[in-house]
Design a protein around this nucleic acid. Sequence first.
DNA 1: ACAAGTACAGACAAAAAAGTAAGGTACTTA
DNA 2: TAAGTACCTTACTTTTTTGTCTGTACTTGT
Lengths: 131, 131
Amino acid sequence: MAKKQRELPDSCGLGPALAVIGGKWKALLLWQIHQAQPCRFGELKRLQPDISEKMLIQHLREMEADGIIHREVFHQVPPRVEYSATPEGAELDLALAPLAEWGKKHQERTEKAKVGAVRAVRTATEAAAPG
Amino acid sequence: MAKKQRELPDSCGLGPALAVIGGKWKALLLWQIHQAQPCRFGELKRLQPDISEKMLIQHLREMEADGIIHREVFHQVPPRVEYSATPEGAELDLALAPLAEWGKKHQERTEKAKVGAVRAVRTATEAAAPG
DNA sequence: ACAAGTACAGACAAAAAAGTAAGGTACTTA
DNA sequence: TAAGTACCTTACTTTTTTGTCTGTACTTGT
């Protein structure tokens, strides 16, 4: 694997899975690459403007080393590189789906409290300054 | 959520999920708590001897704040605290199963290369110092 | 008296991850 | 000649995460 990273303990297979997908942007990148294959570097950058080029290339290289994405260079000018998901990457993306589902549900649940609080505040504000 | 942590970008629900389960030992802890409910602090420590007490309590508290485990204190001497999975925690554990599956498969795949190398080295060693 | 067990808390340090900023190539367009 | 595009690379800094160590309050066993 590409970099020395925090070693995840393992007893049930989650260790290696999280080692592969645990980076800050990796899940997102895999998802986007899997959606819009093949994807170019600049395309990914545009889709995710907040990621720095360094992190982008670093994550892409690690994911390539982990065998979940494929990198293909076209010797052209200007240079052109395409990224796509390997079969393993595609499988991983599918395995991630239930987790994403849970995440969405949990997000809604935990936001209800917030929304409630916001509504209460807004109501009070509107009562104080109506119209 | 319990602590300020690196903010995960989100577009598909994976952000919040990984924020909840992303710690080094969290998935493992959830899995063990879900297996052997209810679990005491010392029990978890014994099950996972490599985790420090600080990380154990820290992760437990964060998971409690995220609503995936429940903490119950019995006012006894010596103190007694029991941890169990909430319904949401149980759901999360289930959602994690496909990922664990993938991890196991991927681990086997990537270890084939290593096993080959190890066998070669061992054979050489045994040839040098047999018996 | 002293060690051992329970479930933590807090200060501090080390390690890992992520970010910033600058540069580099090889070619095109103005 | 300068600026622009695409795809990186490197050095350096900051932030986040994890680990180590010490200490608490109380009881039981020797």
